[in-house]
Amino acid sequence: MTIDTHLERLAALAGIRIEYALLPPDRDGEYRHKHRTIRLRRGMSARLHRSVLAHELAHAVFADEPSRFGPVHAKQERRANEWAALRLIHHDDYRRAEELHEGHAGGMATELGVVVSVIEAYRDILLRVEDAVYVRPRMGAGMWDHREDVA
């Protein structure tokens, strides 16, 4: 199963309908909680489509309602970006892409089939401590999604 099929299946299981529509040029997608609908702009590249769908699906998972209050909006967007990054990027693939492209976000995004903002969101959830990198660390011993020893 491809990641695209997996995302579409997640949406279906959650009762979220995906529609393709003409959206304003500055919008690639949106989630409408009241209607349980994700609207996506027609004609996006596969990388952009996958990235936007995962981002909007995160808004659905968290039942986000649009907010004009800056801190709330920023929190919703950051959380959606991080949720999408964790679903679209496997850490071993990220590590290989980082080595192959010497950390260049654009090359890594192309390699991993996502957009640069997904790479940036994934980087934001990494924590480097001495000779280790932790993915999504939390408080408490052994509380992380992945630990990678680095030189």
Score class of each variant (00 low, 15 high):
residue 2 T to D: 15
residue 5 T to V: 09
residue 10 L to W: 09
residue 10 L to N: 13
residue 12 A to D: 13
residue 13 L to V: 07
residue 13 L to P: 01
residue 14 A to M: 13
residue 14 A to R: 11
residue 14 A to Q: 12
residue 15 G to M: 03
residue 17 R to S: 14
residue 17 R to I: 11
residue 18 I to E: 02
residue 21 A to Y: 02
residue 21 A to W: 08
residue 21 A to S: 11
residue 22 L to K: 11
residue 22 L to W: 07
residue 23 L to G: 12
residue 26 D to T: 12
residue 26 D to C: 10
residue 26 D to I: 02
residue 27 R to K: 15
residue 28 D to C: 11
residue 28 D to G: 15
residue 29 G to E: 09
residue 30 E to F: 06
residue 31 Y to S: 01
residue 33 H to F: 08
residue 34 K to Q: 14
residue 34 K to R: 14
residue 34 K to A: 14
residue 35 H to Y: 13
residue 35 H to C: 06
residue 37 T to R: 10
residue 39 R to K: 15
residue 41 R to W: 03
residue 42 R to V: 12
residue 42 R to D: 09
residue 44 M to A: 07
residue 44 M to W: 09
residue 48 L to Y: 06
residue 48 L to G: 09
residue 50 R to K: 08
residue 50 R to V: 03
residue 50 R to Q: 08
residue 51 S to V: 02
residue 55 H to M: 05
residue 55 H to V: 08
residue 57 L to A: 06
residue 57 L to D: 06
residue 58 A to W: 09
residue 61 V to N: 06
residue 62 F to S: 06
residue 63 A to M: 14
residue 63 A to I: 05
residue 65 E to W: 10
residue 65 E to H: 11
residue 66 P to D: 14
residue 66 P to F: 11
residue 67 S to T: 05
residue 68 R to L: 13
residue 68 R to M: 10
residue 69 F to N: 12
residue 69 F to M: 08
residue 70 G to K: 13
residue 75 K to E: 11
residue 75 K to C: 05
residue 76 Q to T: 05
residue 76 Q to A: 11
residue 79 R to L: 14
residue 79 R to P: 03
residue 79 R to Y: 08
residue 79 R to D: 15
residue 80 A to E: 06
residue 80 A to N: 05
residue 81 N to C: 11
residue 84 A to C: 00
residue 84 A to D: 03
residue 84 A to Q: 03
residue 85 A to F: 02
residue 85 A to T: 02
residue 86 L to K: 14
residue 87 R to A: 05
residue 87 R to V: 07
residue 89 I to A: 01
residue 90 H to E: 14
residue 91 H to P: 03
residue 91 H to V: 04
residue 92 D to N: 04
residue 93 D to I: 02
residue 94 Y to K: 00
residue 102 E to A: 12
residue 104 H to C: 14
residue 105 A to R: 14
residue 106 G to T: 13
residue 107 G to S: 10
residue 107 G to N: 11
residue 108 M to G: 02
residue 108 M to A: 05
residue 109 A to H: 10
residue 109 A to T: 07
residue 109 A to D: 09
residue 110 T to W: 08
residue 110 T to C: 03
residue 111 E to I: 01
residue 112 L to V: 08
residue 116 V to P: 01
residue 117 S to N: 08
residue 118 V to T: 15
residue 118 V to G: 06
residue 118 V to A: 09
residue 119 I to Q: 04
residue 119 I to D: 03
residue 120 E to A: 10
residue 120 E to F: 02
residue 122 Y to N: 02
residue 125 I to H: 01
residue 127 L to Q: 11
residue 127 L to P: 00
residue 127 L to N: 04
residue 128 R to V: 08
residue 129 V to N: 02
residue 129 V to M: 04
residue 132 A to Q: 09
residue 134 Y to T: 04
residue 136 R to W: 08
residue 136 R to I: 00
residue 137 P to T: 04
residue 137 P to Y: 07
residue 137 P to A: 04
residue 140 G to I: 01
residue 140 G to D: 00
residue 142 G to T: 00
residue 142 G to S: 01
residue 142 G to N: 00
residue 143 M to T: 10
residue 143 M to L: 01
residue 144 W to H: 11
residue 146 H to F: 06
residue 146 H to S: 01
residue 147 R to Y: 00
residue 148 E to N: 00
residue 148 E to V: 01
residue 149 D to T: 08
residue 149 D to E: 12
residue 149 D to C: 04
residue 149 D to L: 13
residue 150 V to F: 08
